[in-house]
């Protein structure tokens, strides 16, 4: 199981949002850190095949990004999680399951399991527009996990979650990362320092750090803040 990213670049006019990033990701949780505007979301959207890279390539076990095979092993929670306000939570998950190609029976079972896992059982029959921000975020996490994806891409997944939900979420992700590739993007260091076995740090579209972070290296947050001294881009 290998997600291969080879000299991936994204350029908007003269602005380079992602600059020749190359890396290979295997099983485990990979924490992507970077300030707002560092290029994290652009990078993740390219991994999900939503955005076409200006240069370079992305593949998973030989399957090019954006192909049907690649998309069938992908789970994605975008930063701005979109939903249909008049769908119920359950309907939304069943629709997403059909989009992901799950057989009907499996879709029903999986939706039920994830509704319970994300503590949405009571609200599953209510319209999403009545959900709180945290509930919507949990629904977003549930839809990303529907197809048991080999590659799980989570962009700012803890936004809107309360402290208890954040802890619960970290546990789920840690467990999930044992068998799959999880790429988790955030600008909150505490979200990933306990769960990510591999840290990726982005600044101005470039990868400025990659590798595990052990206690011998000191405090990750201090290191992170030091990298971004001088303010935002």
């Amino acid at each position: 199981m290998e997600l291969k990213i080879d000299r991936v670049t994204k350029q908007y006019g003269s602005k380079i949002a992602v600059d020749r990033i190359s890396l290979t990701l295997g099983r485990g949780v990979h924490g992507l850190l970077g300030e707002n505007g560092a290029g994290k979301t652009t990078f993740m959207r390219m991994i999900c095949g939503i955005l076409a890279p200006t240069g370079g390539s992305i593949s998973f076990d030989g399957m090019e990004a954006a192909t049907e095979g690649y998309r069938s092993v992908l789970g994605y929670l975008p930063q701005d999680f979109g939903y249909y306000p008049d769908f119920t939570g359950k309907d939304f998950l069943l629709y997403m399951a059909a989009l992901k190609g799950l057989p009907k029976r499996r879709a029903g079972e999986k939706a039920k399991e994830l509704i319970e896992m994300t503590a949405l059982k009571e609200a599953a029959g209510n319209k999403i527009k009545t959900y709180s921000g945290g509930m919507r975020q949990r629904l977003g996490i549930a839809q990303a996990l529907l197809n048991d994806p080999d590659i799980l891409v989570l962009d700012e997944p803890t936004a809107g979650l309360d402290p208890k939900e954040r802890v619960r979420f970290r546990e789920v992700i840690q467990e999930y990362g044992k068998k799959h590739i999880v790429l988790l993007s955030t600008h909150i260091v505490s979200d990933i320092e306990h769960v990510a076995g591999n840290i990726l740090m982005m600044k101005r579209g470039q990868l400025i750090y990659r590798g595990p972070w052990g206690e011998e290296k000191g405090d990750l947050e201090q290191f992170y803040l030091k990298q971004f001294e001088g303010g935002e881009e």
Partner: peptide, 21 residues
Amino acid sequence: EESRLKTSNLILCAKNGKNPV
């Protein structure tokens, strides 16, 4: 509407998100 609701991100990266949708 899919763009306005930002659901196009979820659709386009799903297995059946292109031709079938």
